[in-house]
Design a protein around this nucleic acid. Structure first.
Lengths: 228, 228
DNA sequence: CCGCCCCTTACAGTTCCCTGACGTTCCTGA
DNA sequence: TCAGGAACGTCAGGGAACTGTAAGGGGCGG
């Protein structure tokens, strides 16, 4: 079975050109002209990679990506856009993109990047990387979290916080450490309840009984701890 | 334990800047100043990701990458270069690179790309250090105490006090010393029974017969002592 | 303008810690 | 040996400290 690539792009010329080149490379290609169509196509057709334009009519590209990830779509997504601002790129990656190419771009480079992404995916597939605790599975590659198999949408901060906890695997993480890892480098002496609120949200979304957490535990006077 | 990143870069300023930023993000960073050094470092240090400059003295970047891949090095490699020609990029990807960033670049974007690459590969391990005496085990990392294998819930102060005793291993700890270590502030001539109260609680929770303690011993007129 | 996300604040519920009082044990000296 | 005193053990209640959680507002991007 050939590798399938879904292009979500409203500009017909560009889409056509890409399709041509990719097909010459031997890929199976499908094109969606807007966001909803793209989401539907990803659901039904199960592509191995998605090339996603950010500027789309109807549904924003970020939202499409977001929807896909929340849906449980874990294949690489390459973002394609005219916006080259660094902030845009960072946001794209943060939302779960795997690469970010700005227009104008060279077709050969795009092909090479597609190839690199697919190569990496295949290579990784051998040793699946998924963290888990209890009935919750976390895939750092796609920033996707599942509980009992179904995707749980987490806000970016929530995901990062969860990841920070998971990385410590059962050890106590102080609020300050978490602050430092998730928020950045200057963990002030801020006496803030921010961490707590996010923890509460995580429990609400991930714990069977948020009032009696079994995995995201409080260690009084010390911080929080993730119980596998 | 933390994620390791190897930078192969001959420009000291750039290397230093990158190292700084990556370390702030919590990575373990090593820098190699030329190709051979980079290869050696990758072999010996087993980084989780390599940032590779193409323009290197002595050994060309492509050669380095080639050598690494032939070596069986399968971690992601991000190429960093001033050469933005499409042909260069394609060649880089073809040689086995996973991403290609051209100078000048934004640090945030680079960090985001590093993050995106690592998402698909990294995994973490853990090491456990446990103190123990008698049938009691103490894990400072989780602030968890077990007696005969089953968990014993301790209040924060109790745990800290226990830890202070354990650290002294058989030596006598005066009330004042304990106060100072656990409570931080300097213990005035406070004739307080606070320490005693907590000791009593510890005995109740940890000693088989609290009335005849076998581990948490009283040294009259001096303080307390932990018997292994 | 809306929606999402994030942080803050405030309040409520718990847990915990210190204190003071009293009982018990140990040591000492007559 | 025994009384007295000092040191330690124990207990319970008030208040402080800590966390859970629900709004509310600001910011940012779409």
């Amino acid at each position: 079975m050939p590798t399938r690539i879904l292009i979500v792009e409203d500009n017909p010329d560009l889409a056509f050109g890409l399709r041509n080149n990719l097909e010459i490379e031997g890929y199976d290609v499908s094109v969606a002209g807007d966001g909803p169509e793209g989401v539907a196509s990803a659901r039904a057709w199960h592509p191995d990679l998605v090339i996603l334009d950010l500027m789309l009519p109807g549904m924003d590209g970020y939202r499409v990506l977001r929807t896909l990830r929340d849906d449980g779509f874990d294949k690489p997504v390459l973002i394609l856009t005219a916006r080259g601002e660094e902030a845009d790129k960072v946001m794209g990656f943060r939302t779960g993109a795997d690469d970010y190419v700005t227009k104008p771009f060279g077709v050969l480079e795009l092909l090479a990047r597609v190839d690199a992404l697919l190569r990496r995916t295949v290579r990784v597939a051998k040793g699946v990387v998924v963290e888990s605790f209890g009935e919750v599975q976390i895939d750092p590659a796609t920033r996707l979290v599942r509980r009992q198999g179904s995707a749980v949408p987490l806000a970016p901060m929530e995901f990062d916080l969860l990841l920070a906890l998971v990385r410590r695997r059962g050890a106590v993480a102080s609020r300050r450490e978490l602050m430092k890892e998730v928020w950045g480098h200057q963990a002030d002496d801020v006496v803030s309840r921010t961490v707590d609120t996010h923890i509460a949200e995580l429990r609400r979304k991930l714990e069977p009984d948020p009032a009696a957490p079994r995995h995201i535990l409080t260690v009084r006077k010390a911080g929080y701890r993730l119980q596998a």
